[in-house]
Design a protein around this nucleic acid. Sequence first.
DNA 1: CTGGATCCCTGAGGATACTG
DNA 2: CAGTATCCTCAGGGATCCAG
Lengths: 121, 121
Amino acid sequence: MSANKLKERKKISCPVEYAVSVLSGKWKLRILYAITKQSPKRFKELEREISGITPTMLTAQLRELERDGIIEREVFATVPPTVEYRLTAFGKTTAPMMNEIKNWGLLLKAHQAGNNGNEIS
Amino acid sequence: MSANKLKERKKISCPVEYAVSVLSGKWKLRILYAITKQSPKRFKELEREISGITPTMLTAQLRELERDGIIEREVFATVPPTVEYRLTAFGKTTAPMMNEIKNWGLLLKAHQAGNNGNEIS
DNA sequence: CTGGATCCCTGAGGATACTG
DNA sequence: CAGTATCCTCAGGGATCCAG
């Protein structure tokens, strides 16, 4: 997200839009969900857990989450390098929301399964 | 969202990713939030409430929400035309999630206000 | 292992004009 | 009022290569 976008964000009044401005991004919620489930988490663990993501994108989205104060990064001077990501105190406030999103995802899936024998029709 | 994307959706296992696949789109959550707060809602009311959206985009996103079984559309043969949008029974299951998203948006805003006298630094 | 730096591309999003 | 039809832009996302 550009610096310009950051300035735009300050003008937002709608709380939902405000939340979206921080959570949008193809992988943000999945990353957040993965770290919420188990923390801390290493870079490689995240990469494995979030199928389809590339290291480049993972890095980019992690940086934004970090910049927004939701996660923090700890580097260990080991060989090979180790980096752990965990929720900040503020990041933990996303837990109820993440939980509801997960629950609704499950509801949605069940609902669609109910509606769709649409392979046939 | 293309028909191809719909097929892709069936492969998704992660509930969060599944929810995101339906809710992603720049205006989806704001539309949903607006209809959740007060239902039914007319096209023009939505357009007014969601600042920045164009009629074209509003239509497109409403169609997707309708196709996904979250909202429904009722047309009245009046002059001028009237169209009302409301949550479906399933759409109402988004309420707890929407509420948490809104709450977190408020938290986030308060949090950033706390961190940022960064105009000066 | 954990990324940074580049370049490229697609499709979501937007602008405009028109209509029942 | 509530859309549809077109066309076009641009930035988010991805691929690739390189490095501490």
